[in-house]
Simulated scan of single mutants.
Amino acid sequence: MTAGTIALLVIVALVVIAGFWAIGAYNGFVRLRNLVQEAWRQIDVELHRRHDLIPNLVETVKGYAAHERGVFDEVTRARAAATGAGSSPAAQAQQENALTQALGHLFAVAENYPVLRASENFQQLQAELTNTEDRIAAGRRFYNANVRMLNTKVESFPSNVIAGAFHFARAEYFEIEDPAVRAVPTVEFGTGTPTDTP
C-alpha cells in the first residue's frame, strides 16, 4: 500500500466516524426535544385539571361569602388568562403565578368563614387542588430537568454545530413562583411549633 492510499483510507475512516457521530448527535437532539415536549404535555394536562377545579371552588366560596365579589372577579380573570395563555412555558408560568396569587386571596377569604372551611365540598375541592398542585410540581421538575439536558447539549461544543445546522434551539424553563416555598419559617419558642410566615 502506498502512502497516498493509507492517507485516503484514514480520511475516509475519519469522515465515516464524523458521519456516525453527526447522526448520533442529531438523534440525541430529537430524543431530548421529544422528551421536553412530552413533559410539557403532562404539565398541560394537570394545568387544565387545575383550571377546571377553580370554578367549583369559587362557587363553593360564593355560597358562604357572596359579598367578596372583588376576590371572585380576580380569580375569574386570572383563570381566564391562564387558560388562554397557551404560548410559551415562560408566558404560561407568568399567568399561573397570577392565578396562584388570586387563589391565595380566595383562601384568605375562606379563612374568615369557619363553616365554609368545615364544609365537606370545600375540603374535597381543596384536597383535589392540593393534589393537582403536587402533580404540577413533580411534572415541572421533570420538564425542567429535560430542558436543562437539551439546553446543555444545544450550547456545548461540538454538539452545538449540529444544533445550529438543524435548528435545534434552547427550550424555556417552566417556573412557577410558590410563596409557600420561599417563605421563611419562624419558630415560636413559647409553643415549640414551627409556623410559616405569610
Rank of each mutant, 00 (worst) to 15 (best):
V71L: 03
P114C: 11
V147W: 04
L125V: 10
L99I: 02
E177C: 01
E111W: 04
F29Q: 04
L47E: 03
A25M: 08
S88N: 10
A25G: 03
E74N: 09
R69N: 05
T60G: 00
A39M: 02
G63Q: 08
T2W: 08
Q94R: 14
V187G: 00
A183T: 05
A98M: 06
A180W: 08
L150K: 07
L106Y: 05
R49M: 03
V75L: 04
I23M: 09
M149T: 15
V15H: 15
R69H: 05
N34R: 06
V30K: 12
I43G: 05
A7L: 15
L129K: 10
D178Y: 03
V71C: 02
A137G: 08
I23H: 06
L150M: 12
H105Q: 13
S159M: 07
L8T: 15
I43K: 04
E111P: 04
A110R: 02
E38K: 06
E155C: 06
F29M: 02
Q124T: 12
Y143R: 00
H48K: 13
L150H: 07
E120Q: 14
R31A: 12
A22P: 02
T197D: 03
L57K: 09
A39I: 00
Q101G: 13
G84L: 04
R77A: 12
L99C: 04
L99M: 08
V75F: 03
I43P: 01
P55I: 00
F122E: 04
L47D: 00
W40M: 11
E96P: 01
N56I: 06
L103Y: 01
A110D: 04
A102G: 01
G19C: 01
Q124C: 05
S159K: 13
L116I: 02
Y113V: 04
D44I: 01
N160G: 08
T132Q: 06
I23N: 10
L103I: 11
A3I: 01
N151R: 02
I54T: 11
D73L: 02
G70F: 03
E175H: 10
L129P: 09
L57W: 09
L14C: 15
G192T: 07
L125E: 07
T191G: 07
E59A: 13
R170F: 02
R41W: 06
S88Y: 11
G28S: 12
T186W: 06
P194C: 09
E74Y: 00
L35I: 00
I6R: 15
E59R: 13
S119F: 10
E177I: 10
T191V: 07
G28M: 01
P89R: 03
F157S: 07
A18Y: 09
T5V: 14
E172H: 06
Q92T: 09
H67F: 11
E188C: 06
T191A: 09
G86P: 05
W21T: 06
A22R: 01
F72M: 05
Y113R: 11
Q123S: 12
A180M: 11
E59I: 01
T130D: 15
